[in-house]
Design a binder for these strands. Sequence first.
RNA 1: GGAGGUGUGGCCGAGUGGUCAAUGGCAGCAGACUGUAAAUCUGCCGGGUUCGCCCUACGGUGGUUCAAAUCCAUCCGCCUCCA
Length: 410
Amino acid sequence: MSTPQFPPVDEQMSLLKRGAVDLIEEDQLRSKLQRSLDQGKPLTVKVGFDPSSPDLHLGHTVLLRKMRHFQQLGHRVVFLVGDFTAMIGDPTGKKVTRPQLEREEVLANAQTYQEQVFKVLDREATVVDFNSRWLSPLGSEGLIRLAGRYTLARLMEREDFRTRFANGQPIHIHELLYPLVQGYDSVALAADVELGGHDQIFNLLVGRSLMREDGLEPQICLTVPLLVGLDGTEKMSKSLGNAIALDDPPREAYGKTLSIPDRLMWDWYLLLTDLPESEIEARRAAVAEGSLHPKKVKQELARRIVTDYHGAEAAREAEAEFERVFASGGAPDDLPEFTIDRDTPLFRLLVSAELAPSNKESRRLIEQGAVSVDGEPLRGSDAISSILPSREEPYLLKVGKRRFARILIA
RNA sequence: GGAGGUGUGGCCGAGUGGUCAAUGGCAGCAGACUGUAAAUCUGCCGGGUUCGCCCUACGGUGGUUCAAAUCCAUCCGCCUCCA
């Protein structure tokens, strides 16, 4: 095994600090890096993942990219699947009746997770581990001993617990155990650094304390911000519908990126690309003084994001199509095609072609002037039951801005 | 173990016998406008319809009533307090 070549400490620090929220403690990270450089030994970087929701979006990649930074510098990144913690994690208790199945489910999720994660991470350089490896053998005795090493008062420092307690909302015991168990993972791995989202800072710090108590050198805690989603206010999350999923088709990812508020794109540049910060600043300044159009900058961002997950070719196509559809009112290339019986009234036709979910909605859309045939808008209550004459070539139907289909009248 | 509260459309939340497909907000959809799928304004926002109406829906079930989201019984879920 060859000795890894690490870049100079200052260079490492500047990459690692990019976009970080918390870095506890900066000096300690510096000396760890120095030592690793001197001894030619990589740092162990721990990142925990709860495999309960396998659909990754750009928000998750902020953390993944930071992991990637460590990998680029030659460090050892442990992708820790919280398979044990996920199994005790459900507070409603509805799922506890079938622990066997649930374990399978967790493992299946972890698998899906990994497939997506390696779009960002270097597969070769990633160590995948499972925390059940040490948490299962711990047993109830070990768990109680672990619980004896922390106090309620310290756990209640966590804002989440504090406010829930103050508001009379329930806090289940296992939730209190969570930070401890997560902290124990750090002890088990003897982590040099733990990364997480900013919301994880409390748990990361518990790991730091437990390590110190165990006589280990405490881990560095480095957090990254939660990415703000498409709406420009809430954090990106699938349930809020403001997310770009990693497996969103290129044109979706492209269009969604262009729809973010302008002010948000600087953060996205910082957190979702590796464009040097000086260049980001240069663009920002150029936009501010009016010499660069914000759309241009945002298009570049969208292109970069799509390129990362779908390749340069897909990004070019997505951009061309976006221009065609939205800037010039054209239609995309590959459209779903339907063959419809002749004499079908328009409102039924829309439903058959999956352009409207129900007859009622279909009527509404037509009345509101949302429907056009071959580029000609159809409007009004007369149009609802109108019938398209049959002909050789298919009709191009458009509903709203984004729904298209080709219709062939049988 | 005891006392009380609560369960309404995708979400939050009004409504306490008919005028309720159910006020309002959010989300969503559409139109106008725009560099944008942003912002703003306007409209729509359970389903079917021969446009008369009809069907489904207010935790589940059963009942009272000409009529129930609203009353009664029972069951289920969630929450709080006391022990």
